[in-house]
Simulated assay, not measured.
Amino acid sequence: MSLTNKTVLVTVINDFRNDARVQREVRSLLSQKAKVVLLGFNSKNSKEIFDWNGAKVILLKKSDWSWKKGKFIEFVLRGIWEGLKFPSEFYHANDLDSLPIGVFLSSVSGGKLIYDSHEIYTETEGLSQKPKEQKIWKWVEKKLIPFVDETITVCASIGKELEKMYKLPKVWIVRNVSEKFKIETKSESPFHFEKTILYQGILRKGRGLEILVRILEFLPENYGVAVLGEGDEVLKKELLDLAQEKGFEKRLKFYGKVPLDELLSYTSHADLGTVLAEDICLNYYYILPNKLFQYLMAGVPVLVSDFPELSNIVDTYKVGVKTNPKNLQETAEKIVLLMEDYETRKQLKANCLEASKELNWEVEEKTFLKVYERLAN
């Protein structure tokens, strides 16, 4: 397969600088000598055009609309207007909210369209609580899917759901695995606890943050929760208030967002990485996030919710412990057992590093590039 000098227009409705998956895929396309144009949405109130590792990046100005649907419509229209300037052989639409742009542009130019579904968009935590809006998005996805040439998603369970929902012959699985990193461990831990339980990623309800704060009640006083990431500021305040109410304010620390190229040097200092998603929507039940693979790459054992995709990784590679996060006492006991048993921790850390030799982007990108190979041929 040759993507040499072929143009790929990538669309995403966020500031890609915080999106590890989009960055990985763009690098892979560039490695095949493709001309990549990335069209995204700026987190700032201005339009930006710049080069990123050889890709032309256009981040559209943040919308002034207060009406959420108006913001989306404006982004789609502006995205189409910008995209028309770059007729492409391939269009790569990240998630359902950028798919309308890809459908329009590929229909006009005759280019091939790839739909990269990072989740079951219609089964997110937000939409699952808004049935009318959810119904509209399901209708949109159903109408747009027939224009797609190939569909990619992040795990087998979501792939099967999409195949069933839209009668697709095949959904390609490209997991959110981490690149191989040479981790420059800091001489001193950035964390302030003797035993650090890490939450890494966006702050959002249902991702297990409240559980981690409440679980401190059942853990020794030298155990603390470190949070790497930003997100819902209301949730952050609620967590700080809860910690203060429980007397745990010194055992919960927020460290903000860390640049992706520095992240694992922080992660590697944690004693335990957590993915304690709650079963509040189908997306969370099938969750298989970036951070799980980042923990493994950093050699950090994991504590995960006993959900299908998470359990499969833990059972297959023996890299941590599964739990029912609703049972705080039992989960706390599992944490202590893992933290205090030196031999078990040593073996789990070794298993994490061994697993990362297989669960990394250098291996996973072969599937990603096969999608383009199939379309190119």
Rank of each mutant, 00 (worst) to 15 (best):
M1W: 04
S2V: 02
T7V: 11
D19T: 11
R24K: 15
S28N: 14
L30D: 11
Q32H: 09
F41T: 05
S43D: 14
L60V: 06
D64N: 15
S66H: 08
F75S: 05
K85A: 03
K85F: 04
L96N: 10
Y121N: 07
T122W: 05
E133R: 13
Q134N: 09
K138A: 02
K142F: 07
F147N: 14
V148M: 11
T153M: 06
E163S: 10
Y166R: 09
T185K: 15
L198I: 03
L219C: 08
E221R: 13
E221N: 12
N222A: 01
V234L: 11
E238S: 08
L242I: 02
L242P: 09
K250Q: 12
Y266W: 15
G273R: 10
L276E: 03
L282R: 13
Y286V: 02
L288S: 12
Y295K: 03
G299Y: 02
P301N: 09
V302Y: 02
D315F: 05
Q329A: 09
K334R: 14
V336G: 03
L338S: 05
M339V: 06
R345D: 02
Q347E: 15
Q347N: 15
S356A: 15
E362L: 04
V363K: 15
Y372A: 13
E373G: 14
A376C: 09
